[in-house]
């Protein structure tokens, strides 16, 4: 799929993710209107915006769950436009879903095993041994506090535990870029603290993270950079402290 031409076009800049003029409509409704966003390797980016501003739609376009109608998404310098969702996962993009989508006939451990068997396996070109995979499932479950539920069915989990499973399953794909779409809604203060801490640790181990969140305390602790979407447009992008003091942001988002 890579041609010399597209290699030559790839930006010389060192960004990991490059979103250029991405647009998406649902019928006549413009959900994303020419979004530009560039994320450097190792960055922690917070993505905020009012309900329905297009955050999840942007994630879907980056991950290939939806295909953008205009613009380009580049990852590691390569255009992703023609790639299916699973191919993007092989290349190192993993996401959690805002509304949890667990595999309901599988145990928690087996849910975590799916990315291990498919994404990680395909990338490394070799099977993890059963023991390696088990150990990794346990490690992942423990990291989100689901260690005791590892053999349970997702049907036995609470909504909050399902969110944790979502996050762990995205982490299981061993991504370069992790996108967490409202992983913390409904969590207690201490749990939010734990997850944020975990995400920061994960980031320090080299994983770039985009976090979508309505809980401002979490966003401000986590983000090195803050991006604001309103009605499908990016209205601010910069240092978190500057962004939340931006009058346009206050008017469009925080002040409402």
């Amino acid at each position: 799929m890579m041609t010399a031409a597209s290699l030559a076009q790839s930006p010389a800049s060192s960004s990991l993710l490059e979103v250029e003029g991405v647009g998406k409509r649902f019928g006549g409704f413009i959900a994303l209107d020419g979004i530009n966003l560039s994320v450097a390797p190792g960055e922690r980016v917070g993505l905020i915006g009012p309900n329905g501003s297009g955050k999840s739609t942007l994630v879907n376009c980056i991950c290939g769950t939806l295909h953008n109608e205009t613009g380009t998404v580049r990852f590691d310098g390569h255009s992703l436009n023609k790639l299916e969702s699973h191919e993007r996962t092989y290349r190192g993009i993993a996401r959690s879903f805002q509304l949890p989508r667990p595999f309901v006939t599988m145990s928690v451990a087996d849910n975590l095993r799916v990315p291990l068997l498919y994404a990680v396996h395909t990338r490394r070109g070799r099977h993890l041994t059963i023991e390696e995979a088990d150990a990794r499932c346990i490690e992942l479950a423990n990291s989100v506090g689901l260690g005791a539920k590892i053999n349970k069915s997702p049907k036995d989990l609470t909504q909050i535990e399902m969110r944790k499973l979502e996050l762990a399953r995205a982490m299981a794909a061993d991504p370069k870029l992790l996108i967490a779409d409202e992983s913390m809604a409904g969590l207690s203060d201490s749990e939010v603290g734990e997850i944020v801490e975990m995400l920061i640790k994960l980031n320090e181990s080299g994983i770039t993270i985009i976090m979508i969140e309505h809980i401002m305390r979490a966003v401000m602790t986590f983000s090195q950079r803050l991006v604001v979407l309103v009605s499908g447009k990016k209205i601010a992008d910069g240092k978190p402290d500057d962004v939340i003091r931006n009058p346009e942001v206050e008017r469009a988002y925080l002040g409402q």
Binding site: T65, H86, T89, F97, V114, Y118, A172
Partner: peptide, 9 residues
């Protein structure tokens, strides 16, 4: 959809 996101072709 979740399967694709987990790398399943």
């Amino acid at each position: 959809v979740a399967a694709e996101a987990c790398g399943v072709p």
